[in-house]
Every structure is written in structure tokens, then in C-alpha cells.
């Protein structure tokens, strides 16, 4: 009887099954093609030159400084968006009137792609930092709101009943049952918000930037420096991965009771 793949690989380590193999191979082929001149540097820089450019950009401070600017935009936008999303979801999830007032507005907002608001935002806020942060915040708000709202609404009524039968008042019910019950949904929302804010960061930095990763990319484009562009793409990817790891860490800390984690 054949064993399932993961079981087999622990029995007898097959080097051809390593998950690193194909990316490594791709890098080698890419490097080889660049060295042979099949891919010219202005089309795509070789991995080795990307590596040295990365080291050089870190050394010169170019990368750290511009990364800090981009990070500030993403983090501020995310914090503002998540805060507004949480506040609205609490108001709508915990009070019927709040729901009647807030939910329709959010549903309307949902139908408008945030990117389409860019011209208005530029008219209102100019082309500086405010527009970028506002775009990120606006986009990040939605997944937080939608997930938390659904999480609050989806809290098990049987648990609510039980808690009520032990004399918990409204405030205690919210504190002991509703919020902990909705926490997994909130974290899911945060995870989406994180990846959306990186996405919006990339977009917002294309508008017009005098600093930041987008600024680096724009300059590199004008100079046909594909090595710098690839470095910036790597950093964007790293931002997304770091954010995801962060939320995962929060999840393992706060959701220790969850069945999937409990069994692990």
C-alpha cells in the first residue's frame, strides 16, 4: 500500500522531493540565461546582480530610509483602517440601531473599489502622504469590519444563553462571550487587511512619491535599472510575509483554546 506523500518523505528523505528544488532551479536557469546574454540586463537583472544591488542599497542607506517611509504609510494606514473597522463593527454588531445605521453605508462603500476613489482623494488631500495613508486605511477598514461584524453576529446563541443563565449582564456577556467568540474572525480580518494594505501601498506609491519604495521603483524604471526594481519587489513580498507571520503569532498566543491549535 503506498504511503501518503508526507509520511513517505519522513521515512526516506528523497532529495528530489525537496520543496526548495524548483525555486533553486529557476534561479539557476535565470542566472545562466543572464550570463549567456539571452536575457539582457535592461529586461531582467541576474539574481547575482540583484543580490549585490541589495547589499549596496542597504549599505548606502537608500533602502532602509525609503523602506521606513513606506512602512510608516502602511502601518499608519493599517492602524487607522483597522481601528475604524473595529469601531464600526462593534457599533453595528452589538446594537441593532448601530447595525441599521452603519451596515448599509459600509455595504455601499463596498461596491466602490477604493482605487476608484483616488482622484477624489487627490483633490481633497493633495498628492502627499495623506492621500496614500487614506487610501490604505480605507481599503484596510473593510475586511476588518466585515469579518468582525460576522464574527459578532455568529457568536453561538447557545453559549449566550448559558452565560445569561448564570446571571451575566449585558456588559459581562459582551466581555466574556461575544468578544472572545469573535476574536478568531477579527484576526482573519486583520490578516486580509494586512495584505490589502501592502497592495494599496504599492498602488498609492505609484501616484507620486518623493520617497519610499515606490519612489525607488519609479526612478529605477526611468533608469532601466531592473536590479533595483527586483530588490523593491522582494521587499514588498517580505512586508507581506512579515505581516502574515505577525498575525499568526498573535493567533497562536490568543487562540490557544482553538481546537486546531489545542491538538497540536
Amino acid at each position: 500500500m503506498p504511503l501518503p506523500t508526507h509520511a513517505r518523505s519522513t521515512l526516506r528523505r528523497d532529495p528530489l522531493q525537496s520543496r526548495w528544488l524548483s525555486p533553486l532551479l529557476l534561479l539557476l536557469v535565470w542566472e545562466g540565461l543572464c550570463r549567456l546574454g539571452v536575457i539582457p540586463a535592461h529586461t531582467l537583472a541576474a539574481p547575482s546582480s540583484v543580490g549585490s544591488t541589495l547589499a549596496q542599497m542597504i549599505g548606502s542607506g537608500d533602502l532602509p530610509i525609503n523602506l521606513a517611509v513606506s512602512l510608516r504609510r502602511a502601518i499608519l494606514g493599517l492602524i487607522i483602517g483597522a481601528t475604524v473597522g473595529v469601531a464600526l463593527a462593534l457599533a453595528a454588531g452589538l446594537a441593532r440601531r448601530g447595525d441599521a445605521w452603519i451596515d448599509p453605508l459600509v455595504q455601499v462603500k463596498r461596491t466602490i473599489p477604493v482605487v476608484a476613489l483616488t482622484p477624489l482623494f487627490i483633490i481633497w488631500f493633495g498628492i502627499g502622504e495623506t492621500t496614500k495613508i487614506a487610501l490604505i486605511a480605507f481599503a484596510a477598514m473593510l475586511p476588518v469590519y466585515i469579518n468582525l461584524h460576522a464574527g459578532i453576529r455568529g457568536v453561538d446563541v447557545r453559549l449566550m444563553d448559558a452565560a445569561r443563565s448564570f446571571g451575566l449582564g449585558r456588559a459581562a456577556l459582551i466581555r466574556e462571550v461575544v468578544l472572545p467568540g469573535a476574536l478568531p474572525a477579527l484576526l482573519t480580518g486583520l490578516r486580509y487587511a494586512l495584505s490589502i494594505s501592502v497592495l494599496m501601498l504599492v498602488f498609492a506609491e505609484q501616484i507620486n512619491a518623493s520617497a519610499g519604495l515606490g519612489y525607488l521603483i519609479n526612478n529605477a524604471r526611468d533608469a532601466m535599472r531592473t536590479d533595483i526594481i527586483v530588490v523593491c519587489l522582494l521587499v514588498y513580498a517580505l512586508l507581506g510575509l512579515t505581516g502574515d507571520a505577525l498575525v499568526r503569532a498573535i493567533e497562536t498566543r490568543t487562540l490557544a483554546w482553538c481546537p486546531a491549535l489545542v491538538e497540536a
Binding site: 447557545r158 453559549l159 452565560a163 466574556e176 472572545p180 467568540g181
Partner: peptide, 11 residues
Amino acid sequence: VFQDARLLPWK
């Protein structure tokens, strides 16, 4: 005491 114990899983 309910049929399903109804313990709060996060406590």
C-alpha cells in the same frame, strides 16, 4: 446544566 455542556471554549 444543558445537554451540550456549553462551556465557553476560550476559558
